[in-house]
Design a protein around this nucleic acid. Sequence first.
DNA 1: TATTGTTATACTCTATAACTATA
DNA 2: TATAGTTATAGAGTATAACAATA
Lengths: 160, 160
Amino acid sequence: MLMDLEARGHSEHPEALRLWLRMLTCTQLVEKQVRTQLRKQFDTTLPRFDLMAQLERYPEGLKMNEMSRRMMVTGGNVTGITDQLVGEGLVERVGVQGDRRAYRVRLTPRGRKVFDEMARQHEAWIMAAFGVLSPREVESLHRLLGKIKQHHHDSRLETA
Amino acid sequence: MLMDLEARGHSEHPEALRLWLRMLTCTQLVEKQVRTQLRKQFDTTLPRFDLMAQLERYPEGLKMNEMSRRMMVTGGNVTGITDQLVGEGLVERVGVQGDRRAYRVRLTPRGRKVFDEMARQHEAWIMAAFGVLSPREVESLHRLLGKIKQHHHDSRLETA
DNA sequence: TATTGTTATACTCTATAACTATA
DNA sequence: TATAGTTATAGAGTATAACAATA
């Protein structure tokens, strides 16, 4: 279970490529851990956790298309995940005033309680994974990744 | 198609958590781009590209269990992906001397040629994604992520 | 006509576990 | 007994496209 995704680079191995492969490896290591623990401790999945996490910040709920955009997946999938969570009583659909096509999805009181416990654990897993870095290093990484994210965002606007 | 996975943090938002969410966002942005382009330009997938990339570094081929470890997936999946690539004439299985249970998988000449072209494109996509960073910033990111990877590796050894 | 959300479908990737053949 | 690899299965996750209801 060690890994060497970093072998994936082409022969010239420019620095950006090595960086990407290492980033992918790190992300997969942490993500695999999170998925496994979510399954083991809470019998849930990352997309379901994601959806609830989005809702936690919006007590009034989010519309389906907003959720789709935030989770970066298509609408049909959000419907499916939402259906599961509704079935478990963790979220609920409520009508939107003035537009009878739309819904808001929001956490139920029970959903909020369950999510709080998951988030507490999730936080601990993440802290463990990044615990090796000093606060300054964390801040540095955060800033550099911010540039990439911003750059991606800007590129999209240019071609839109 | 904007995103806000970074909403996923819990209310306290410690720095490590914010870092993780941003890292996940960045990775998904780039990965989605790579998957889409691999599909559009080469009608292939990331795992298939991964497998071939591993082989490119080992002209003599890799055994199935080595491949499984490197790709961080279980053996059955490697069999499936290999089967696809064999079917397309891009890789081949060759026997291992002295152990009739084992195989090596290696690129065929055609597979190598096809992979070279894919890798060339792949490199360009990555360079575009990370082009906003200076060489020093790339090096800095690479080093910091290396600490995380190493830390993860060490943690596993402790509990093994 | 356009938009919101759902349904239906199909495909890729994944882990698990049972299995075969060889060591 | 252990190891290399395959097969079988089930489920997660995804995109696409057709669809209904409403704007």
